[in-house]
Design a protein around this nucleic acid. Structure first.
Length: 394
DNA sequence: TACCCTTTGAAGCGG
DNA sequence: CCGCTTCAAAGGGTA
């Protein structure tokens, strides 16, 4: 349990981190709260999953993955629960002084011309709640940050350029507010893509608006994604033979969290190495309260829904093999020797961890067994006995 | 230049 | 169903 580890078990992390965060006091507060809210969060996450599983959507999203029984929707019962959460988030965590240091409140409103900008937040998504916009939407890489009419990233001539009437711009104030009838009902705010769910031959959104998840199939694509893909590009070259763009995976909750918080962590600790930053972010992620995590889970879920709507035929498998040989493959190769500490959990089982090798017991992240990832949010390691306990026991 | 590192979560695959 | 793998972001580090 991360909360446990954050209370005392995370000492290891604190030691090796050698960094003091501004939200330490805040975290202590959270720890107390977490002591009795873990199950609530589990329930919440479970409900999020259930919501996605129960409500069948008759539209393209359902068509896309209906065959695999994937179901993303919102039964009213659960949505009410979500609404409560959402209200708590909107009115609570974003406004309440209980989270004085929460970055969202510290970030300037990007739509205010004189708004001061965080020194290192140029690239980070900015969450803002004013203007009737859902406070979470701007975390979405392909949300208002790119589509808002006042966004500096938006090529104002895009619609002219592409001949697309972007009537949806104003409606994006609530793109991800879920319709009463569930996801299957495309909200007016989502109608900007509902009129044409089918992708063009190139995978580009039919509107001509480059979806942030679409990246050029070049080698650089991995680092030229959401943000840059939205910038106006004068590229007569690409007219030649547009290769099939790569549609990236939608970001999960933690990725959204990282995307938002990276700049803050970098600013606080002056680290730049992403591996180290990500370690910190991972610990912070576990230290988040249930509301805070739920926000990102919900956001990620909505992003998946949007992604599903935009690319009904896309599959995560489409991007398999896009990257080069991975580290784990090499590890596997090196682990082919019989004495290797491979798959101890599979060999001995959870009940016989004493038989596990050292790496299996105490190296949670780099060992292959880490890949036994929870399949659903409610099975998040937060709520399960995870190798993190090894860290705490060291 | 290409890959590694590092994190969590989602999805796909194979047994 | 379970275990495992891959990919998603990011950018300094490394070969």
């Amino acid at each position: 349990m991360p909360q446990l580890s954050s209370g005392g078990g995370d000492d290891l992390g604190a030691n090796d981190e050698m960094i003091s965060f501004k939200d330490e006091g805040e975290q202590e507060e959270k720890i107390q709260e977490n002591a009795f809210t873990e199950r609530d969060l589990a329930d919440l996450k479970s409900s999020l999953v259930n919501e996605s599983e129960i409500n069948q959507s008759p539209n393209a999203a359902a068509v896309r993955r209906g065959q695999q029984g994937e179901q993303r929707g919102f039964p009213d019962k659960h949505r009410e629960h979500l609404d409560v959460v959402s209200k708590q988030q909107d009115g609570g965590m974003y406004k309440s002084p209980a989270y004085p240091g929460y970055p969202f409140l510290m970030l300037p409103d990007p739509y205010l011309p004189n708004s001061s900008v965080s020194p290192s937040s140029n690239k980070v998504s900015v969450v803002q709640q004013s203007h009737g916009m859902h406070p979470l939407t701007s975390l979405l890489p392909y949300s208002n940050d790119h589509f808002s009419p006042s966004s500096p990233h938006l090529p104002t001539d895009m619609s002219q350029k592409t001949g697309v009437h972007r009537h949806q711009s104003q409606d994006l104030s609530g793109y991800y507010s879920l319709p009463p009838g569930g996801v299957s009902q495309i909200t007016p705010s989502m109608s900007w893509f509902s009129h044409s769910l089918m992708l063009g031959p190139s995978g580009m959104h039919p509107t001509g608006i480059p979806h942030p998840a679409i990246v050029p199939p070049t080698g650089k694509q991995e680092h030229e994604q959401y943000d840059r893909s939205m910038k106006p590009q004068v590229e007569p070259k690409r007219e030649k033979e547009p290769k099939k763009p790569v549609i990236k995976k939608p970001l999960n909750a933690f990725m959204l969290y990282m995307k938002e918080m990276r700049a803050k962590v970098i600013a606080e600790c002056t680290l730049k190495e992403s591996a180290a930053i990500n370690q910190i972010l991972g610990r912070r992620w576990h230290a988040l309260t249930r509301e805070e995590q739920a926000k990102y889970y919900e956001l990620a879920r909505k992003e998946r829904q949007l992604h599903m709507q935009l690319y009904p035929t896309w599959s995560a498998r489409d991007n398999y093999g896009k990257k080069k040989r991975r580290k784990r493959e090499k590890q596997q190769d090196s682990n082919t020797d019989p004495g290797s500490p491979k798959k101890c959990r599979a060999r001995f089982g959870l009940n016989q961890q004493t038989d596990w090798c050292g790496p299996c017991r105490c190296v949670p992240t780099i060992h292959p067994t880490r890949s036994a990832a929870p399949r659903y949010a409610h099975d998040s390691p937060i709520f399960l006995l995870t190798p993190l306990k090894c860290i705490a026991s060291l």
